[in-house]
């Protein structure tokens, strides 16, 4: 099957070609390609999975099985800002639960939900490697550390 390059932007296509040339076996680039396609599309729907499968000459089920194994791939739509609060040990003993409750109240959603305007999705995640500056969270790809409810409030308000 021929790969329809127009499924992604030219910029993303250039990244994909670069990534696929980096390894002795091109399948090794699968995780990286899932990342860059998700970066463009926001999440990986069935069309994206099928397109990537064609690119790698793999069955879509195989690509889906890989994508669904890793927590960073969104298989469903997420808000413009994906809030990921670490609740693992060092964060939980230094106030992560309070941070989660604060965000839930502030945004009027529970963990796992998206605000009706599609702006914020809130999830909890495992250790982010920020234990020295706990509690910590990521919003999309950025780290926010040494959180307090006041600090979180300022961060959320700065996101338009």
């Amino acid at each position: 099957m021929v790969v329809d390059r127009s499924f992604v932007s030219e910029e993303t296509w250039a990244k994909i070609e670069d990534l696929m040339g980096r390894y002795p076996d091109k399948r090794s680039a699968l995780l990286q390609v899932l990342h860059v396609v998700q970066d463009e599309k926001g999440y990986l729907n069935y069309d994206a999975i099928k397109w990537i499968a064609t690119l790698f000459r793999l069955p879509p089920a195989e690509v889906y099985s890989v994508a669904s194994f890793y927590t960073m791939y969104n298989l469903k739509p997420v808000g413009k800002y994906l809030i990921q609060v670490c609740t693992n040990i060092s964060c939980s003993i230094t106030g992560a639960d309070e941070i989660v409750r604060f965000i839930e109240k502030k945004l009027g959603i529970k963990v796992g939900e998206t605000t009706p305007d599609g702006k914020f999705t809130l999830i909890t995640v495992e250790c982010l490697g920020s234990c020295g500056k706990a509690p910590a969270m990521m919003i999309n790809k950025d780290y926010y550390e040494e959180l307090t409810p006041e600090k979180v409030e300022r961060i959320l308000e700065s996101l338009k």
Binding site: Y23, S28, L31, Q32, L34, H35, Y70, T71, Y73, E126
Partner: peptide
């Protein structure tokens, strides 16, 4: 040397 990013799996 090639950098390979994981995707969230301990």
């Amino acid at each position: 040397i090639v950098v390979h990013r994981g995707a969230g799996a301990y």
